[in-house]
Design a binder for these strands. Structure first.
Lengths: 342, 342
DNA sequence: GTTAGCACTCTATCTCAATGAGTGCTAACA
DNA sequence: TGTTAGCACTCATTGAGATAGAGTGCTAAC
């Protein structure tokens, strides 16, 4: 059985209709909805073929048809028309919040959830493979040092260190000089043992502190590495197919436990559509346990100086792919532009 | 109608039973459960009295009785026996995470939710009415300054400032000196306009920067002031009386929008039980919209150096008050101890 | 290849009766 | 006067038909 033009039109009509209504679609509906001028009986024949090919299925005998994962996939790959959608408020947010990355992400993800009516998530741009800009040690009191670590892209991490030895202001100044001469501009991934050893040697009797600082740098960076912001978890309760207690609980929980979303939001290699930066995972295609009844659309974004993050939308399999993909495309370029010009 | 000993016993039995089962309690059940040796008919008479007094009600004729808000209130005020409950894992968390306040709070709130099976929330200790420890300005590049603000209790805030004028290292050093001499040890609430004016004057041509730094200090402190961590939002789906789509959606949403929880978690004056630091809000007693079907138990805690925060548990009105109050009492003292000894 | 017609299937909805838990009231009892 | 047995009554819940309606697959005619 091969896919011809007419079958494509019919499949498209079925999916479009199902996306709108969420109800199984019958042959009569299609007969009237399309301008093929075919009777319902003819549509029925075609539908039987489409079912045999695995694009649609019946929830039960004597019900209309609903798309299968394969059907959605076909739709997304060949029939989708991503609408370029402006989110008016988004612009303001992007302009205002430029100074506080965290706030900006929170606002973006919230607006995204409100606008799409699906669950939204966004990762803070990853700092991996980026350069240390500078390190600032300050004496807090006799036993504590404050280490402020600034990474290319003005990402700031700080940590309080408990020192074994008492350090006076002068020593702290020296250590600052040493650390910055050695580490400024060095990609984090390139800090290796021999560099550390060299610094420890130069630090002389204070080598212990150097070790602690380096540890703190490593920890500060790796620990908060994948920060995920989410919004609109409760939106999934809007969709009856996800709203039963069992599923909803698991899904909302996954949103709460942001760590579980990591797999979704860390792009792995370049697959299919990834030249556009947008990926669609339908039902069982997802990598995350307990999301088999959902679809996930992710988009990568980049903040000018090499900081990369990912945006994700989680909704029912019958989500409005056109709208979601369009919105993400738009947002993606907005974010890219923003920091290129900012 | 006055409350006598027997009525108290019966009311207690009704509430205890209802807390366990969640089902309306009938007269026969009470007749057998208590050791009063009364027939169900007698119990019925007493129940009619209790209903008239407003402590219990019937969901419909020919159903058993369930406690009213007033009934719960009576229970909590006079009949509750808070069990001192150890949470074994909690100890480890408190010991391990001492260094990273944020992580500690996240772990605590998560364990609390898991242990109680209710929704849990905790505020980061408030920095209000605390003293500035020191301010550190550093030059990031020609146009940007990094301001690190450390508050008593080692709470750190940082901010990147865009400066109008170019500043060399020396100037930054001077500004640092100036800021710290003037502001170190000063309670945040006492920074006023005349102090700022004085500093600006001393800063001479760099007075603009001083203004920006002060703004940043104010902003940094006020903005993230009430940081709320939550966990276990989905636990409310366990309780049928809260699990219908309408209510559940609103409740989980409130959890997501942590800002809305602020009212719950900012103690206002000293009411009823507050000498123990524990407050119980039953049903309509709550201050937050959309939580009329819940009860909320809050406990204040203090981290040694005057930092105060609040822990909250949200559950159905038929929550296990004994357990929750016991757990919070325990946790509260654990937290207090921790930083006193740490 | 397309269509009208028809029997068939299955879900959803409604009604109706039966069940059972629990009550309130009355009259008898200690 | 407080307690209890007994009984009629109420009302939510449950399950069993009965019914309607949507939609299909198949056949035969166009």
């Amino acid at each position: 059985m091969e896919m011809d033009a007419r079958k494509t039109v019919i499949l498209q009509a079925i999916i479009r209709n199902y996306l709108e209504t969420g109800e199984p679609v019958g042959s009569r509906t299609i007969s009237k909805d399309t301008d093929l001028n075919l009777s319902s009986a003819t549509i029925r024949n075609e539908m039987a073929d489409l079912e045999e090919m695995g694009y649609i299925e019946q929830p039960h005998t004597s019900a209309g048809r609903i798309p299968t994962d394969k059907g959605y996939r076909f739709y997304v790959d060949t029939m989708m028309e991503a609408k370029d959608r402006e989110m008016s408020e988004m612009k303001d947010v992007l302009l205002e919040r430029q100074d506080r990355l965290e706030d900006m992400l929170r606002s973006v993800v919230k607006l995204l959830a409100q606008d799409t009516k699906y669950g939204a998530m966004i990762t803070a741009p990853s700092t991996h493979s980026n350069k240390l800009k500078f390190i600032q040690l300050s004496r807090v009191d006799t036993a504590h040092l404050l280490a402020v670590i600034v990474i290319e892209g003005n990402v700031i991490r700080n940590r309080i260190l408990t020192t074994q030895e008492e350090l006076d202001e002068e020593t702290v100044l020296k250590l600052n000089m040493l650390l910055n001469t050695q580490l400024s501009g060095v990609p984090i991934s390139e800090i290796n043992l021999s560099m550390i050893a060299a610094m420890k040697q130069q630090a002389g009797i204070h080598s212990g502190v150097i070790g602690e600082v380096i540890d703190a740098v490593a920890e500060a960076i790796s620990e908060e590495d994948l920060q995920v912001y989410t919004s609109g978890a409760t939106n999934i309760l809007r969709y009856p197919e996800l709203a039963d207690n069992e599923k909803a609980s698991q899904l909302i929980n996954t949103f709460e436990e942001k760590a579980l979303l990591g797999d979704l939001l860390t792009p792995e290699g370049t697959e299919g559509e990834s030249e556009t930066g947008i990926q669609v995972y339908i039902g069982s295609e997802t990598k995350v346990q307990g999301m088999q009844d959902c679809s996930v659309v992710t988009a990568s974004y980049e903040l000018g100086d090499g900081l990369r993050g990912t945006i994700g939308i989680v909704g029912p399999k019958r989500m409005d792919y056109d709208k979601v993909v369009g919105t993400l495309k738009q947002l993606r370029t907005k974010l890219d532009d923003l920091y290129r010009n900012g």
